[in-house]
């Protein structure tokens, strides 16, 4: 289908981008990589009069370390993030998640800023960022604010962003050496495909005991879902198969999947149980330095 008629704006600063967004309000859309927006515009899911392209904001492409935080510019492409040595050093599970996503051609365009802003339930970088305890930096007409990643997505395709707000960076705390994380994803084929379910697990293990845990599920709820019971069940325990198997079952109960072409509600719960167990086991092994 043809695109609706829109004007394209190429702001040269964050301030200008925010100003344009506020001016056009609901009649505009911000474009990062464009891999989601252009598909939506073509299918008619979205209709706008203005597209504001953020790709020209070079200052939003930087990946750097700010003290004890990994700063990922919102407009850095997924490929740039997955290839960055700093990411592998600070939080390799993010790179692990990214390379399971889509094809290279999409990862060369898409950005984490776009991933978060779209708020699509089956998106993969938000849950792993949540698991890392990350946060999102938002610039708006009234200045900058930082929002915890877990509070960012409110509902399917709805986020905390107001008209004129853009994501400028994703911030991930430098992880303690006693922690480990894993991203597990299930798809209907090996090549580029949307997730049936994903589970991101993060654990801190000290002297053989899990002291903290975060488990976040993707594609099985309206937003990235924290499996609180699952995470709580492993804290205070020593890593072990039965602990993680029981935790997986708790995660399955906490998931809120729908039935669609990628799987029924029940099947998705079954898969979540397996993925959660595997993610926890892998995260624990990494936390204890048993595997990289």
């Amino acid at each position: 289908m043809a695109f609706c008629d829109f004007k394209l704006h190429k702001p040269e600063s964050v301030t200008e981008a925010c100003r344009l967004g506020r001016e056009f309000g609901r009649t505009c859309a911000y474009m990062s990589g464009g891999t989601e927006l252009l598909v939506d515009l073509r299918s008619g899911r979205k209709k706008v009069a203005h597209v504001i392209a953020l790709g020209g904001l070079k200052e939003l492409r930087e990946i750097r370390r700010d003290g004890d935080t990994l700063h990922i510019g919102a407009q850095a492409t997924l490929s740039e993030i997955a290839e960055a040595p700093l990411v592998h050093e600070v939080f390799p599970a993010l790179a692990e998640a990214i390379v399971t996503m889509a094809g290279v051609q999409i990862r060369n365009l898409a950005t984490m800023g776009g991933n978060f802003s779209c708020g699509v339930p089956c998106s993969d970088t938000p849950p792993i960022t949540c698991a890392a305890g990350g946060s999102i930096v938002v610039a708006g007409p009234d200045g900058e604010r930082e929002v915890a990643a877990r509070d960012f997505v409110l509902a399917p395709r709805t986020t905390v962003l107001n008209p004129g707000d853009i994501v400028t960076a994703i911030r991930i705390p430098v992880q303690p050496t006693t922690s480990g994380a894993s991203f597990q994803r299930f798809t209907m084929r090996r090549g580029s495909a949307l997730a049936v379910a994903s589970v991101s697990a993060w654990l801190n293990v000290e002297q053989g005991v899990i002291t903290a845990a975060r488990v976040v599920m993707g594609a099985v709820g309206p937003i990235p879902l924290f499996a609180e019971n699952c995470a709580a069940s492993v804290v205070g325990q020593a890593p072990g198969d039965s602990v993680f198997a029981d935790a997986g079952a708790l995660a399955a109960a906490e998931a809120q999947p729908i039935s669609d072409l990628r799987g029924s509600e029940q099947y998705r719960r079954d898969v979540v149980a397996v993925l959660a167990r595997r993610a926890l086991a892998c995260a624990a092994a990494r936390a204890e330095g048993r595997t990289s």
Binding site: L8, K10, G34, T35, V39, Q105, L109, S192
Partner: peptide, 29 residues
């Protein structure tokens, strides 16, 4: 496919493979 799914329109943009159906030309100045 016009949706970035098939890869038939892949070109190198600044050395990176991209699906050219998902790039607005005006934004690729």
């Amino acid at each position: 496919c016009d949706a970035g799914d098939c890869g038939a329109c892949t070109v190198l943009m600044n050395g990176r493979a991209v699906t050219s159906c998902l790039v607005l030309a005006a934004a690729a100045d």
